[in-house]
Design a protein around this nucleic acid. Structure first.
Lengths: 221, 221
DNA sequence: GTCTATATGTTGATAGAC
DNA sequence: GTCTATCAACATATAGAC
């Protein structure tokens, strides 16, 4: 549960085979069970998803389900931590290369979008967290830290004169990564009409160049 | 409750004065009460907000509150309809002017952002609807219709050769209006640091021109 | 119009037999 | 490890006294 990609082992990722037989109904890896739980969280909403929903989706009874997991909040924590770890790692990696600020910014947009697509259910859940419990507030704090690093990247590129400086860098950062994050609202894996690489390239290109319209000199209104 | 802006009458928009007195505790216009309800929905989440929460926030007991409103779902319907009516009206207005496609698109981005800021709580609630009940499914259907009209505006501008055509128009539309909608995630009214007009201009300018970086000719990866 | 009291169902979580 | 049975708390919603 510590990092994003460590599978426990073996070929088992879902129910062992077909029907959950009685007596020995289903078997999951930790990650396999988490994946299923997050799917239900995203479909029904975290609050609205009951432990009975989760148990039924896994093929366990509610009580057996409790034997495998510690509680609803802990499931949420594992899920959002996975998203936050992946996003942080991508950003660490981006800033490890001492490129030009504008190149770092472009890489950050690209890598963030890639992580979002690779860890879609976990990031989706993370972005819907609104922060009542301690776990949610911790997740929001980690998110804010990431947002601050992204905003700093924008500011650095402005200071270097490599991108436009007529908009507040924090506002630019919010809008740009708001665009990136909005992908969770509609993308569904396996969509034949829109490949992941097309989404990544579109996000980067729209961020850097916009619609590319020739515009009349704008002023008031 | 039919349209977005019709106040019932009079100066009353919140509790009449100070403490809700016993026997005649509070008085709201329909819109005033809805505004308060939507505030609680957005703070706690629609599902998580109980009718008792809403009643307490209004100064009524739960039972009295039920005397004024018909139920939780109907409150949701009124709120999301208000957002949808406002967005539809802005789009109707935009397309009524027979400007160039690229101008219509720019106006749509501007007007949509303005509506989002003017009706922030209602649009925020609308954007969080995930669709289990009939009311939610109806709201999502109306949203999809609006999204389709926006995507058509993008496609028309591409066809007219006025904006870039190297990205699927539907993808462009999703990303651009995903950026616009992301404003609900962070904007709080009364923010002195970021005026509404600054947000609107930033949204339009970023959409049209992007970061304005001079980029190396891109290809692979 | 507002209240107290309650009907009816669901929630997250546990106890204990097998 | 899985089950049945059960818990206290809380949900939406209503009935009826005042």
């Amino acid at each position: 549960m510590s990092t994003a990609s460590d599978e426990k082992a073996g070929p088992v990722t879902g129910p062992t085979a077909g029907r959950p037989a009685r007596g020995r109904p289903a078997r999951y890896t930790k990650d396999g069970l988490l994946e299923l739980v997050v799917k239900v969280f995203n479909e029904r909403g975290y609050e609205a998803a009951s432990m009975e929903d989760l148990a039924k989706a896994s093929g366990f009874t509610k009580s057996t389900f409790y034997h495998h997991v510690s509680g609803k909040e802990e499931l949420l924590r594992m899920a959002v931590d996975r998203a936050l770890d992946a996003l942080s790692a991508a950003l660490d990696d981006t800033m490890a290369h001492r490129d030009q600020p504008v190149e770092q910014l472009e890489t950050a947009i690209r890598r963030t979008t890639e992580v979002l697509l690779a860890e879609l259910p976990y990031v989706t859940l993370l972005l819907r967290v609104r922060g009542n419990t301690t776990i949610e507030k911790d997740a929001l704090a980690r998110r804010r830290a990431i947002d601050a690093r992204l905003a700093a990247l924008v500011a650095a590129a402005v200071d270097a004169g490599q991108i436009r400086g007529d908009i507040d860098p924090r506002l630019v950062s919010r809008l740009l990564f708001g665009m990136v994050n909005s992908v969770t609202e509609w993308y569904r894996p396996g969509s034949r009409s829109t490949s992941q690489s097309a989404i990544v390239n579109a996000t980067v290109n729209l961020a850097m160049e916009g619609l590319g319209a020739r515009r009349a000199p704008e002023s008031a209104r």
